[in-house]
Write a protein that binds this DNA or RNA. Sequence first.
DNA 1: TTAGGGTTAG
Length: 641
Amino acid sequence: MIRLLRPFQNKSRLVLHRCEAPKTTTTQATTIPVPWNTRLRELSKQGQYQQSLTVYRKMLRSGAAPNAFTFPFTLKSCAALSIPITGTQLHSHVTKTGCLCEPFVLTALISMYAKCLLSEDAYKVFDENPLCKKLTVCYNALIAGYVQNSNLLNGVSLFCEMRRMGVSVNAVTMVGLASGCTNPLHMSLGMSLHCLSLKSGFDNDLAAENCLLSMYVKCESIQLARKLFGDIPGKGLITWNAMISGYAQNGLGTHALDLYYEMESSGISPNAVTFVGVLSSCANLGARRIGQEVEQKIWNLGLGFNLFLKNALINMHARCGNLVRARAIFDEMHEKSLVSWTAIIGGYGMHGQGDISVELFDEMIRTGIQPDGPVFVTVLSACSHAGLTNKGLGYFAAMQRDYGVKPSIEHYSCVVDLLGRAGRLEDARKLIDSMPVEPDGAVWGALLGACKIHKNVDLAELAFHEVVKLEPTNIGYYVLLSNMYTEAENLSGVLRIRLMMRERKLKKDPGCSYIEFKGKIHLFVAGDRSHSQSDEIHSMLSKLQDLIKELDGTKKYNDEKSDRELSSGVGVHSERLAIAFALLNTEIGVDILVIKNLRMCGDCHLFIKMVSKIVDRQFVVRDATRFHHFRGGACSCNDYW
DNA sequence: TTAGGGTTAG
């Protein structure tokens, strides 16, 4: 905490433009050769807020008096560091020096209180100073303050008052409000602001355009965002970044990567924010080689020390199958945030190494980091995949009791999954009944998935009944129950589900698998024959099939299954096509990473196990929920549909 | 006074 040691020895009237560092002989004052306000402005621009407050303290010690040009910078530092006590002290200095009549000081004060999450104090400054009610900048500061404190409604009321009072609205007013439109429910307000912006000519203001663009992204209207992006004539780095991360956040990884290449070819140099979006897309796509190239670029540009980027790199490597590299980056980090821990814990969890996830989680707690909701979701899921049922239940019990984190619906669905996978289906059902919140599709879906693993058709029917009420168009649940009926040889059940699907006009999502080869994504859907190497792929598959039959003396691999799947019209499963493609093209000795957008089925699981034995290579398949490592005829996991 | 970033179950 900064202590202001000797405030205001000099109460003489201040000359606003000339508050300079005095030519004194004191060591502290002479160590800063530039005028005080200039120095404060420089530090503020560089984001050296702590340093800026130290300079302010030195300034007071030296006997120099602060003026209206001093306070905006010091108040900004308090806001950035979120230290309201120092901010309040500065407020009293402002009053004593008579600077409360200066618009920029008033706005800085309002903004400081708002950023320190003290909207009431911000409002008090606004309310007690009649000048504020005439100034656009003061309204803007308070509106932005309300929005930053998640009070969009107050922001809107103030905006209405401002218009009623005849105070002019500018682009900053609009930006303050639009940045509060953070979910699809706010879309109509966001669009009204966009109209206002066009009518008022704010579309010449790049900050306003960028803000509207990210408003559309947050409201999940990615097409409107893209339309606006195309309409912005002088796109800046922030414009490109907003669109790239918009695509990344909305799961449109290929769009994000395409736009990144387009940005580079249009001569705009990327920065750390760009790479965060790009790495996040590589992680979601499983684009290992592109991710590695981007990492190299990050190091070449000297950006490798950015915490956000390191977290993004951990996530990218873990999701692209390179857990060793992810761990190395994590271990080398001097400063680790909660997100760094979450990324590495999740990485091990996805790879089925829940024991390490748990060790890391406990280590994180020992280092004094306060866990949040997402890290509990991550560790609970890791426990679930690794069969660490009691450990997971222990965390669930402790999260509110010991850490004050209230379980959300995501945590409940993890625990239903945890209990369900462990075969404790009745306990899972009881948990659903006792939940303080209404269960959603994910909760019932987790129970349904567990019923599939443990072949409990009765409970599956109940879970299915509930889940289709909540997610009637999610085809995965219909397919899952239909497969259960097939396994149980319940033909009338299969027909019933097919009828339901037909009545509801649901068509089976073909699902796809893909593999990155030479920086390009090769995508396959079931029964696909459109690939340029299709003939070679099918002949490779047929050879593999023969070898499997030869190898499988014990008839573990039942070729009737593949005949059934071929005759059902689904065609050859997409992951098999991707595996055959990889065997034809990738170098021997290199692990093969295949990404599948749906969960792997039992037939394919068995097929890849056998192939890994025949060709003696490691296959890493990432499906919708986790990694499966196949080596020498075995797999790291046993959970598939 | 204003705009862009990492982690999250099934």
